[in-house]
Design a binder for these strands. Structure first.
Lengths: 159, 159
DNA sequence: ATCCCTGCAAAGGGTTTGCAGACGC
DNA sequence: GCGTCTGCAAACCCTTTGCAGGGAT
């Protein structure tokens, strides 16, 4: 994504947040927009603490409470997605302009790759039909090792 | 599953645990076998606390520490699978004699259904080839509502 | 007899909550 | 000015850990 597009994205997501806040009669606080910008400047699967520390480093003071509060709001307006990659530590990522995708997680070095596969949609509609569920979302994670090094490290642990 | 088969399963999983403990030079304590039996008598996706309380109710005293310790061991010998269904609270289920399956979770009433789909295997091998990962396991969860009642309750929340 | 395992309770890590003061409306 | 949002810290929940006594080998 080049700089122009990123600036453009930033404008659009800020607009979405603003609309959401107005609609829900919530306040347009500077903290919320600062956090949104920080999130849309990142390009990874971060946790709440990392975001909190990043703000601190930039000399933008926000409390942990505000970080969590804002992450909740951003999830509600679909600007952020929360993941639980098999541990209790929640991970987040921006979601505007991204096509829905799934994750491939290296259990050794924690590298996370993304992939898309249209077959999941098919599985979803089949499952909806069979069980009478209305499905809103899904998460598909593959866990494994990303390289021979990581595979070797894993084998060593299992002994 | 009829009673005969369940008794049979119980015998077999106890044997598996015993072999594992001997192999790893761990001790065959009564707590471990009692917990294994409790787990294989259940038929749901339970959390550690529920199991702990169940043992208490049956007047079989085990500590939380032992519950967690035993769940770890049972995971290692593949008799139990641990799930993280989008919350920090871990869920467990017995896994011997079960084919690998995935989950459908009602976000309103927390009902959990299971399903299998062979296409996931295909996606898995494709992803392995493309990204050079060696995949050990996966988790696919669909989140939605299980009935019109639950769907309605969800809509009411969103207002 | 060894020393791993247990029970207990305290500590731990991530997240949520309560409260008083700040500030968007 | 009203009422929500913030920062702070304490509380919270689930899980892990430390330790001393007990039981498997």
């Amino acid at each position: 994504m080049n700089t122009t597009t990123q600036t453009d994205t930033l404008k659009r997501v800020k607009q979405i947040l603003e609309n959401y806040l107005v609609d829900k009669k919530l306040r347009k606080t500077p903290e919320r927009f600062a956090l949104l910008e920080a999130i849309y400047t990142r390009d990874d699967h971060f946790d709440a603490e990392t975001l909190y520390v990043e703000m601190k480093m930039k000399n933008y003071k926000v409390s942990r409470a505000t970080v969590y509060n804002t992450l909740d709001i951003l999830q509600e307006c679909k600007l952020v997605i929360k993941h639980q990659f098999g541990s209790k530590l929640a991970r987040y990522e921006k979601s505007f302009g991204y096509q829905q995708h799934d994750h491939l997680i290296c259990v050794e070095c924690n590298k996370i790759l993304e992939f898309c596969d249209p077959r999941i949609r098919n599985i979803q509609s089949m499952v909806e039909d069979i069980y009478g569920f209305k499905i809103d979302s899904h998460s598909l994670n593959f866990y494994g090792t990303c390289s021979e090094d990581c595979a070797e490290r894993q084998r060593r642990k299992e002994r």
